[in-house]
Write a protein that binds this DNA or RNA. Structure first.
Lengths: 104, 104
DNA sequence: TAGGGTAGTCAAAAAAATCTGACTTATTGT
DNA sequence: ACAATAAGTCAGATTTTTTTGACTACCCTA
């Protein structure tokens, strides 16, 4: 019998958790587009050049798990899925604005 | 003859650059400690449990290259090296505070 | 009913980040 | 003079992230 113990690294730095949420090659860009309007998968794939399905799917899933985006099924007309910023996600907008201000 | 072309990915998202600077397993913690007081290598190694020399050395080098930390040799008394936040680094303090505020 | 669009999943490969242990060089403290 | 401390470097191993390509399944339109 084998017992595998995986120790969850406990956070020492409070900002680290948030930073981790936004780390990853495509998340910032996804977030930025989400601020503008609801996202759709294949749309995103075309908008973010250089990206790929798998990575976007993973990033979207993580952003969703982290509670920054919510996935909703639009049951009307052309029946599709949308990703929207949650309130928690919207709370991060000022952080992005601040970062963008600094990057000048 | 072979020609190898490596294309630098150009940034689409302005915040991405800053976010990238602070991404990495130890950077947020290093930054947090740097806000408190000047850093010294072996000191840091003891303070940040679970870290290792190589990773800290790399992180410090990157933070330095990014212009967030500056490395100075204290030529007095016990002759050692210190890492301090630069003005650019200090400019990021509000971002961290904001993130810490959100993480409650 | 065939083709195209939407929204993915899966396994495997490749690339990037992180960790380990051994080694270095210079400076101190005893 | 000797050992300890400081501040690393280096190569190789391991882990994590990101990418690729193939494959689903469900609409929708002509």
């Amino acid at each position: 019998m084998t017992t595998l113990i995986i120790m969850e690294e406990k956070e020492t730095c409070p900002a680290q958790r948030l930073l981790k949420m936004l780390s990853g090659k495509w998340k910032a860009e996804i977030f930025r587009l989400a601020v503008e309007s609801p996202l759709r998968f294949n749309n995103l794939l075309r908008q973010i050049q250089g990206s790929n399905k798998q990575s976007l799917a993973t990033a979207l899933k993580e952003l969703e798990e982290e509670g920054l985006l919510e996935k909703i099924t639009i049951k009307l007309k052309p029946l599709h899925i949308e990703y929207n910023l949650t309130d928690k996600g919207k709370a991060l907008i000022p952080v992005f604005q601040q970062l963008e201000g600094l990057s000048q």
